[in-house]
């Protein structure tokens, strides 16, 4: 039994969205999400119905939701899943992704880091002695770019949502990192060696995206990546959600007003976006040096014996990971 009513139809609500000062039933929650995606696409010239689209899918709520929304709206979108080798977490994530694609008759491409490049994310983190998210992000960016260009795709879609973008903005603003601030746009245009990349979920929170998946019956990887536990990105999200609770709408105002008002002032201030690039001597990808960062990484880590996930976690993350493993085994 509920008391709140849908703002649109006055039927019983299933969700309260304080930032809209409103409640919604299932049907009108989906309508809200679709309209926010359509507005993002239109405002930023993200996609056309003729585009051949590649969606970067992880098995999490955001990437499956954006793939679902785009195909529902009539876009032609295939998926690409990269097997990162993060133990059972990656295995389960792939299962959710594959099931989603099969149920909807969608084309899913897969790349297995260990099988095709001789390493996985935990091993790369151990060998390079850098945080796991560094090797993970580097690998994904390179392989999504390469797959899009090789496959003749017009644009890569990622499932970054409003919370993701606000957290990145928060981190960049804490350091006043103009280089990164000047590159934080919801659309990165194509340039030689790089496909166009867009973020159609930029106007939707992750609570709304999780709700989309639940209403649409999409099973997704709910558990957190063990390598991400305790990272700064999560700390920034917690901080923003604490503010959001006290002042609903702050998070979207912070990010969307940045995009509308600050990003134009910062255009052209990124040296990386405007600097001269060379072709990587190994793979041909654009790079500021002779060899690109991905090829340097694979040279260094490929062929190492796999390192178990728990050996590259900090103390707090390892404790949480082992507790989750124990719970899963019960």
């Amino acid at each position: 039994m509920t008391y709140s009513k849908c703002r649109v139809c006055r039927e019983p609500a299933i969700i309260d969205l304080p930032r809209h000062n409103a409640n919604f039933c299932a049907e009108h929650l989906l309508q809200l999400c679709r309209r926010q995606v359509q507005k993002a696409i239109a405002d930023h010239d993200m996609l056309s119905f003729d585009d051949k689209i590649l969606v970067a899918v992880s098995g999490g709520k955001d990437s499956l939701a954006v793939w679902d929304i785009l195909t529902e709206l009539g876009y032609q979108a295939d998926g690409l899943y990269i097997g990162l080798g993060i133990g059972e977490y990656s295995d389960v994530s792939y299962d959710f992704t594959a099931a989603f694609a099969v149920e909807r008759g969608l084309d899913l491409h897969t790349i297995d880091l260990r099988g095709e490049y001789g390493y996985d994310v935990p091993t790369a983190a151990k060998v390079t002695k850098r945080v796991p998210c560094s090797a993970c992000g580097l690998s994904k960016r390179h392989l999504f770019d390469k797959a899009a260009l090789d496959g003749g795709y017009d644009v890569v879609v990622t499932g970054h949502n409003l919370d993701d973008e606000a957290a990145v903005l928060f981190g960049n603003a804490l350091r006043w990192d103009v280089e990164y601030l000047a590159r934080q746009f919801p659309v990165l245009p194509a340039r030689p060696g790089f496909p166009k990349k867009v973020k159609p979920l930029m106007r939707l929170t992750e609570r709304e995206m999780a709700a989309w998946c639940i209403v649409r019956g999409i099973d997704y990887q709910v558990e957190e990546c063990p390598m991400a536990l305790g990272n700064k990105h999560l700390a920034y999200k917690d901080a923003l959600n604490a503010i959001e609770r006290e002042s609903p709408g702050s998070k979207s105002a912070f990010y969307l007003n940045f995009v509308d008002k600050m990003a134009p002032l910062l255009a052209g201030h990124s040296q990386a976006a405007s600097g001269e690039l060379n072709d990587c001597t190994a793979c041909g990808a654009p790079t500021t040096g002779e060899t690109c960062a991905f090829c340097r990484l694979t040279d260094r880590v490929s062929g190492h014996d796999p390192v178990p996930v728990e050996l590259v976690l900090n103390k707090k993350a390892r404790k949480a990971y082992l507790a989750a493993q124990a719970a899963a085994g019960e």
Partner: peptide
């Protein structure tokens, strides 16, 4: 399998899930 809003009533016989929505990727 259905979402319940903030003022949704809960019954002592309910089995419910509290699902986190924040992800760190």
């Amino acid at each position: 399998g259905t979402l319940v809003p903030g003022d949704g009533r809960l019954d002592e016989h309910d089995t419910i899930e509290i699902r986190p929505v924040v992800s760190g990727g």
